[in-house]
Design a protein around this nucleic acid. Sequence first.
DNA 1: TTACATATATGCTAATTGCATATAAGATAG
DNA 2: CTATCTTATATGCAATTAGCATATATGTAA
Lengths: 254, 254
Amino acid sequence: MTKRSNEEEQYLDRYDASRFDRPSVTVDVVILTLREGHLEALLVKRKEHPFLNYWSLPGGFVQMHESLDEAAARVLRQKAGLEGVVGDTSREEPDHHPIYLEQLYTFGNPQRDPRMRVISVAYYALVEASHVREINEETALFKLRIPEGAATVEIYDGKHKKYSLAFDHAEILAVAIQRIRGKLGYTSIGFELLPRRFTLRQLQEVHETILQKKLNKDSFRRKMLASGMLEATGEHEQGRDFRPAELYRFRRVP
Amino acid sequence: MTKRSNEEEQYLDRYDASRFDRPSVTVDVVILTLREGHLEALLVKRKEHPFLNYWSLPGGFVQMHESLDEAAARVLRQKAGLEGVVGDTSREEPDHHPIYLEQLYTFGNPQRDPRMRVISVAYYALVEASHVREINEETALFKLRIPEGAATVEIYDGKHKKYSLAFDHAEILAVAIQRIRGKLGYTSIGFELLPRRFTLRQLQEVHETILQKKLNKDSFRRKMLASGMLEATGEHEQGRDFRPAELYRFRRVP
DNA sequence: TTACATATATGCTAATTGCATATAAGATAG
DNA sequence: CTATCTTATATGCAATTAGCATATATGTAA
């Protein structure tokens, strides 16, 4: 590359920047929960073209006054009927904790929306199953499955029927699942899908469901107890046919 | 939240979206390299307000026709004089590999640019020291340091002088360093900062510099050799006073 | 009280890691 | 040419950890 063309490129760069030719920016939120041993996502049915009547991730345009995190929290409230947001420790509820919400990745393929240039900042939220409500007939939970080695996710309803997703949302879902699989190993992300008090078996089931494989029970126990992240409550679960397990609580590790 | 206000919020949401009130979107690229046992970043001096004459990350506006990855690769070429881009395997050079470039995080605080709303999709690139050129007096390498537990990075020039960075770029640099520290453990990211052929000691120095701590030599050797990621070349380094070490090559693991 | 199912504890083996020691290979000084 | 220096590489061992099997504990329900 010559000096001349370098300067030219820089000029064009600035020229375009000064124009009012800007992409739209949205946030799309992957809302994940665990039900009956399945990883599920909350999706909404589109009421507009393109992809009319397709299921899609809840999302919305980023407003000029709000940060990306705020936009994602707003989508969580408005589109998914979830009140809790990250870091909201104002109400110290005994059985629930604030919803885990984290930025995932930004998708900006110029063709991802056929209407116009839309850049989507994707977030993912981890929600206890008891928190999720299918607020209307346009909102529903779907089971997720990543076929071996695939880059996108398949979604199924309760009757095992398979659906196609709007835009690149199947890819976004797949990235979200890859992310939490990775994070399970070195963070306390597993706790986010459980109530405040839980048994070791419940925690192991969370890990097994997300990783899609059986784990060794004793090793899992020992590693978790040794990690210092668990605190025994002295209480035990109730209403089981057999010996009830002790309830633990997550202890933010120092 | 009542049904009415929910509908109202959705209306406002769509209303704003239909306006031409859109944020600007830029990419900023953290270009990291390793020199003399220090992690360094390539920065450019700003020639405009705000932050006139401050050092900043090379960046540019995302054009309407290009993907985010393409925009980042363009910034790498134009602003940093680096020709190589991700995945460019067209020229199989014997001593170098394509530059590693990956999306980092998207920064969207409404106040991060005092002029207007700018959302920045940050990328980071890992570059061999021999590849980096300080193309003019507006481009220079700075040493990086994250003080214990801090959320931002400190930068120093060759004379140990400390500088402030433009915008939130010190924070972006800190996020980049945290990211590669994490990735060292479970990816082959360390190889990206070395030429195609390298010794085990060089690889260990890369890890030690990034992690800012000494590693056990034998464990490091064994783990690396056992990982299957290394392939002996049979050749040895040259021009040393003592026994020359064998040169290895990175073997993309299946 | 006993059968049952799962929780929890303990012990053994194999694999991994940290550390120490031994040997190898090149350069260089004499 | 040889001794010496320095780092590379190999080997051995103790301490730690993970996987697996077995034993005991504790609740419900027949």
